[in-house]
């Protein structure tokens, strides 16, 4: 990858993983590295930038998707998909370099932790999955109708899909909505299939009668289970940062 041509262009794409893999395909076949890659929602037009919009091509993206697992390894696919969910600005260019280098070196790429973009991709993957794991615990469902549950979240990374799958496995017979309020995305599940939709104009429903009872029970339990003599608010805050408190029934302020 060291002798590839660098071009001073910003690639714009539609923000999906398929769109990103299309860019990987084009870059790898032309052996030219762009200066920057940006999703079209986040891109701020700039007088100096040369831009090129890349249309998503599902055939190309599928070839890359299969190719990553075949020519690099499963771990590379796992790393790049999860790092892609990160909210960091330079995630795309780092994952691109990681994959292009990976196609040349094979599975050995994952050992090259001292390489800055490899380390970046792996640490992004770690951060995304850590937040996902954290929200598996910190998400709170509210019953809005008989057997229909609603939860709002404010995550840093776009983790709604892996999070939704966790709850489908766990509560397969429960209808639920997970609402990402930062990105205005909703994960809907109706007992059989799921869908992720845009939710800019969604009305947040009211909760049921019995819901109040269980919320009070939970608050009472939460309060009693702490040992007064061992009070340690700093430790509590470390594990349960304040940014998540607005969605927590027991900590709501």
């Amino acid at each position: 990858m060291s002798n590839w041509k660098l071009i001073n262009t910003t690639f714009i794409y539609d923000g999906t993983f398929d769109g990103f893999l299309t860019i990987v395909f084009d870059v790898y076949s032309n052996k030219t590295l762009p200066k920057q890659i940006c999703s079209k929602d986040l891109y701020i037009p700039n007088f100096l930038d040369k831009t090129l919009y890349i249309n998503t091509n599902y055939e190309k993206s599928k070839r890359v998707f299969v190719g990553i697992e075949k020519n690099i390894c499963y771990e590379a696919l796992y790393n790049s998909y999860n790092a892609f969910l990160s909210n960091e600005k330079d995630k795309d260019i780092n994952i691109l370099k990681y994959l292009c280098e990976g196609f040349e070196l094979g599975p050995k790429i994952n050992n090259m932790l001292t390489n800055s973009y490899v380390y970046k991709v792996i640490s992004m993957r770690k951060r995304v999955l850590f937040e996902c794991h954290r929200l598996k615990g910190l998400l709170r469902f509210v019953e809005v109708q008989d057997n229909l549950f609603y939860a709002s979240i404010h995550p840093d990374n776009n983790i709604i899909e892996p999070l939704g799958h966790h709850f489908i496995n766990r509560l397969p017979n429960q209808y639920f909505i997970i609402h990402d309020k930062y990105r205005n995305l909703c994960f809907l599940y109706n007992g059989q299939t799921y869908e992720i939709i845009d939710s800019t104009n969604m009305n947040i429903p009211q909760f049921t009668e019995s819901e109040k009872l269980y919320q009070n029970l939970w608050k009472a339990f939460f309060k009693t289970i702490a040992i007064k003599e061992r009070k340690n608010p700093k430790c509590q805050m470390q594990y349960m940062p304040k940014k998540y408190w607005k969605d927590l029934i027991e900590m709501k302020y």
């Binding site: 939460f222 289970i225 509590q236 349960m240």
Partner: peptide, 20 residues
């Protein structure tokens, strides 16, 4: 309803900092 998670999941942390 429900499944086990091999790594375990903490759902909240009490005022003493111990996980719930």
């Amino acid at each position: 309803i429900g499944n086990g998670n091999f790594a375990g999941i903490c759902h909240s942390w009490g005022a003493d900092g111990r996980c719930i």
